[in-house]
Design a protein around this nucleic acid. Structure first.
Lengths: 341, 341
DNA sequence: CTGCGGAAGAAAATCGATTTTCATGGCGGA
DNA sequence: TCCGCCATGAAAATCGATTTTCTTCCGCAG
């Protein structure tokens, strides 16, 4: 077995270089106020390299009150968008020299209460909140604790800075697309409309319909739970309206998969019988049958902006809420077509 | 604004209770050797509750050489299976009182080198390695560093304990299923066969064919890269073989989506013209068109076992490699049918 | 009355890095 | 020759919690 070398400490480096730990520390951290003979500096740097020295993050964090770690509270259960957000956050954090600690909100009910530990144990310099389950009490605790945080992909009145995308605009683009194709009877599988960002998408849907001068027919907007089965049933319900919608928008691409299945189950063929599209892009969209038209939202930019806003707060600044400014992009694929085509 | 209360320290609790920090610490941690007047104990516990005290994780970790955090090195880029593994790991860790720090292997090329920081800065008590990109040098460093680790979802000769599933068995079940349906010309979209676990799936495929007395025809096993486009093209290639395969197995459910699209693009209709199924279950499988037959592997049990093995190593034990023992389950759906049906 | 033992709790060392405060030695100027 | 200052670097305090090592103080037996 490899000699499980006890971790290399700063004292080891200092000793090998024949200096004290204070100088070693200041040289290794590039303290500009240090005055030192070039050869001594070299000895220290060499020693550190030789021993493959890395400062103990806990000791360093304790002293500096900086952990170089951010936390993200997110619900991993629904794949596409959240996984993409998590990826983007991790990437942005890593690029800034930060590590990412995750807490799944499924823990809200668990004994572990991982999110509370992130909050109260000072393990992280800041927190990104990207969970649906953030309630008022939680936000209150958060503010009282004084831990920097940014709310990601949603906006909560008075809660603090957030980074989000312009869901309403994106949804309007979706409606516009269908209107241009001649659709007037547009149904909306709206998801959990009581919570952000689904609520803002609904706003965008209504705005789009109003702008086109189209009425929203009774029962054409159908909220539902996020699980696949609920989406499947909601879609089926929508397709039983008479007159039947000739086009459907689904609030999320993850939900579009069961929605599409439900359309087929109803004996209808997209896009001939009914066009269907989703809000947000997904890597599988182009491989669905038919390939799914989507509105590509700048989630990556949002995640990036969220991380950077958080790090600015950590540095004592007070950034304002951010809405990713990259314009949404309509990705037209085979699942939408002219009415009656 | 809320008075950003400086974090509550143990000394604050002790002071409020009118005792020293040593007693306070021992009482709060339930030290059984402490002897204390019941009323004093109460005062301490009350004080802690009143102040909403949580020990500073860094200070605690520094002293105890225990961070109550594990790290996972994983590639988030390919969604389903990795996201599922990450979810399961986070859940198991949280249930055991541990937090989870992630490092995406995309960082292997980045400046941040998040994975190295996990390794060398003593931020975590142990590491789960679930990445495709783990090379020999990395494993060597890992062992030399003496940080507990478990390799997840893959096996590396001589590298150390791992937690995985019986890929070969699962793949045999897939082959058996198709054989029972009368297929003799079975193609395999094999993915990155040079790396585990795709290599073990290939072994299972070959074993299944041999057991059924079927030859593996030239070009019927087609390795490919993991990206969707490579899968799409590989599938198209397979379908150009003559005689044409009457059934396809895809090494992963994520890859099954572009594979299915490729089948349709070739003008073939599953399952009449060609059956198709994937290894590993996915939440969208039942909503694809046609619904995808899969072999459900016990990834959650694997993740659980991996976490627990890791925690045992942290506790000084020496668990052996684990193969999740829950039997794979064939989930028969519409994408597979009798030959020529 | 003296001393012993244990209960109850305080004081101090420790984890490892950073940072402020001190000490030493050499050099130039008076 | 002597003083003071700067370059160099060591010693010590700090971050917050844990844990080992003392102190007290009291009651009770001898």
């Amino acid at each position: 077995m490899a000699a499980t070398g006890r971790a290399v400490r700063l004292a080891d480096v200092a000793h090998l270089a024949g200096v004290g730990t204070s100088i070693a520390s200041r040289v290794l951290n590039g303290d500009p106020t240090v005055s030192i003979r070039p050869e001594t500096r070299e000895r220290i740097l060499d020693a550190a390299k030789t021993l493959n020295y890395r400062p103990n993050a806990l000791a360093r964090g304790l002293r500096l009150a900086r952990t170089m770690t951010i936390g993200i509270i997110i619900n991993l259960a629904y794949y596409y968008e959240n996984a993409e957000i998590l990826m983007a956050v991790e990437r942005a954090a890593a690029a800034a020299g930060y590590l990412t600690l995750i807490a799944d909100t499924a823990d809200f009910v668990g004994r572990g209460e991982a999110y509370r530990r992130l909050l109260f144990e000072r393990r992280v310099d800041g927190l990104l909140i990207a969970s649906i389950l953030v309630n008022d009490e939680f936000v209150r605790e958060l503010k009282q604790e004084g831990l920097p945080f940014v709310i990601l992909n949603r906006r909560v009145r008075g809660a603090g800075p957030s980074a989000s995308v312009d869901d309403a605009l994106g949804m309007r683009m979706a409606v516009d697309h269908l209107v241009e194709l001649g659709h007037t009877h547009i149904g909306y599988v709206a998801g959990p409309v009581r919570i952000d960002p689904a609520s803002r998408r609904l706003v965008g849907f209504r705005a789009g319909m109003r702008a086109a001068g189209l009425p929203i027919r009774s029962g054409f907007v159908l909220p539902c739970a996020v699980d696949d089965d609920a989406v499947f049933r909601a879609t089926a319900d929508l397709l039983e309206r008479r007159p039947r919608p000739t086009a459907l928008i689904v609030w999320s691409p993850t939900a579009a998969v069961p929605a599409l299945a439900s359309v087929r189950q109803s004996g209808l063929r997209p896009p001939e019988d009914v066009s269907i599209m989703s809000f947000n892009e997904s890597p599988i969209a182009r491989y669905l049958n038919p390939p799914l038209t989507t509105v590509h939202m700048p989630l990556e930019e949002m995640a990036d902006a969220g991380v950077h806003a958080l790090l600015r707060i950590v540095d004592g600044e007070h950034p304002r809420s951010i809405v990713a400014r990259t314009a949404p992009v309509l990705v037209t694929r085979g699942s939408t077509g002219h009415r009656g085509s």
